[in-house]
Every structure is written in C-alpha cells, then in structure tokens.
Amino acid sequence: MMRVAFLALMGLQLAASPGAGEETGSYVVTGDAIMQPLVGGKGDPARGGALISDRQRSLCTLCHSGPFPDAHLHGTLAPDLTGVGARLSGGQIRLRVVDMKRLAPNTIMPSYYRVADEQGRRVATAWRSKPILSGADIEDIVAYLASLKG
C-alpha cells in the first residue's frame, strides 16, 4: 500500500487542533500514531463499546461493520473493524479517530477531534465550535478497539 510509504515519511510532528474550542486540546503525532492519551486517565472499554454502536452520537457503524450489535444496520463504506486491535496499536487507532485526514487527505471518515467551523462549511448551530467527540469519548473508543484482538 502507498500509504505505508507515505506514513514512513511523516516523522514527528506537533498538531494543534484548529479553532481549539474548550473541548479540544493539542496532541503530538509520532509517525502514524498519537502515543499519549488525549485526556488523563485510561479509557473505559465498556463505555467505548457502547459508544461505537451509538448511531446518533459516534456514527461509527453507519460506515463500519464489526463485532457490534445490529449487524444488518452496519454500513459498507469503510473497513470492517473486527480484530482491529491486532492490526493497529492503541496510538495508531487514536490518530485514525482523531484525524484520519492526516493519513488519507480525501477520506470520507470525519475527523472526530477537530472543530470544522471554517467559512463556507455551514456547520449547523447546534454543532458549531465543538468536535464530534470529546477527548474522553475517544479514549473510551480507543480502549475498546485496542481490545479487539481477533
């Protein structure tokens, strides 16, 4: 895959989240991963599992399938997440949820930890100035996905 070569070039970079609202902080990208948790404390995998299947809040299963309830409502727009914890480290999963566009600029996967209020984006009032998920939400999801080993 081309992406592997691309990732090797990336090295260590500091990313400040644009328009940093109170709910987004800055984070350090190392290669294709974010090694440090976004907020203090370990994520709760049980909560993360429930959040993944929440079609209104996380939206994950609108695009992804995986070992989650209601398989007939899973989307087919994105890779199956079964065993993702065996393919990717927690840090790699974290960067993919935080900002997939960093790895695949044209991806349809939303950047979950970014405020996208730029001019012309027409972000609806209710969603303005906030990321899709909070740092704590993302840590729960990372803890859960990292536990999916096969």
Binding site: R55, L59, T61, L62, C63, L73, H74, G75, T76, L77, I108, P110, S111, A116, G120, R121, R122, V123, A124, W127, R128, K130, I132
Partner: peptide
C-alpha cells in the same frame, strides 16, 4: 460541508450502491 465535512459527491458520486447504515 457540515460538522462531518462531507460533500454530496462523497456519497452520491464516490460511494453510491454502498450502504450507509
């Protein structure tokens, strides 16, 4: 557009025929 940052084309040109949920 929007918080999800998707265009009409993201779904209807590039991904038609696949399932969203």
């Amino acid at each position: 557009i929007g918080q999800l940052d998707l265009s009409c084309a993201s779904c209807h040109d590039d991904n038609w025929g696949k399932r969203l949920g």
